[in-house]
Design a protein around this nucleic acid. Structure first.
Length: 198
DNA sequence: GGAATGATGTACT
DNA sequence: GTACATCATTCCG
């Protein structure tokens, strides 16, 4: 039987690319009044302050990206395309302005609650995209700026769980071609309908 | 004050 | 594969 341990603060302070890679296989858990939902992270993307124009923090601190400049282990939640929200994990030292976008989860707990929130029965459509997983997990703008170690939204690692095989490729929807996207090789839970390009 | 834009998802061909 | 819904933030004037 595997045991769960909350990720220590030092985990998030590592270089952003390392954190993005290491977050694959970890567990995202949300305890909401409706119940608990949890999933295994299978896809992430790193956003760097240096040389990465696609990073929200690239042009300095604004009202929206304020939490990206907070301490490592802070959640950064923002609205995209006027209708979807995305969840990021702030990394590195405070003030650096780097983060990891959580792009897809393998649903583990509270699957029925996820399905109700998403309005679909199809398991593969619950968390296979940044906007989808935010909706399925019941995350909203209230979670922008919360501490992922001391709030209802937390990240865990499982002792004894096998290390997934992680592969790297270019990010999705970004014109800047950098190998900053990480996902589990062959996973059916990743975004883009599982059709991954390397 | 106003217009352009986007780290997406869904529906439809 | 392609169209488009929809709005907070950003940037320009």
């Amino acid at each position: 039987m595997s045991r769960r341990r909350k990720l220590p603060a030092s985990f998030y302070r590592a270089p952003t690319v390392e954190v993005a890679r290491a977050l694959i296989g970890k567990l995202l858990v949300h305890d909401s009044p409706e119940g608990r939902t949890a999933g295994r992270i299978v896809e992430t993307e790193a956003y760097l302050f240096e040389g990465d124009p696609a990073c929200h923090a690239a042009r300095g601190e604004t009202k929206r990206n304020r939490s990206m400049f907070g301490p490592a282990g802070t959640a950064y939640v923002y609205l995209i395309y006027g209708m979807h929200r995305c969840l990021n994990v702030v990394t590195a030292e405070p003030g650096v302005g780097e983060a990891v976008l959580i792009r897809a989860l393998e649903p583990l707990e509270g699957v029925e609650l996820m399905a109700a929130r998403r309005g679909t029965e199809l398991l593969r459509n619950l968390c296979s995209g940044p906007g989808k997983l935010v909706q399925a997990m019941g995350i909203d703008s209230e979670h922008d700026g919360v501490d992922l170690r001391r709030s209802d939204l937390t990240v865990w690692e499982e002792s004894g769980s096998e290390e997934p095989e992680v592969v790297v490729g270019p990010r999705v929807g970004i014109s800047v071609e950098l190998p900053l996207r990480f996902w589990v090789e062959g996973s059916r839970w990743v975004s883009r309908g599982g059709k991954v390009k390397r």
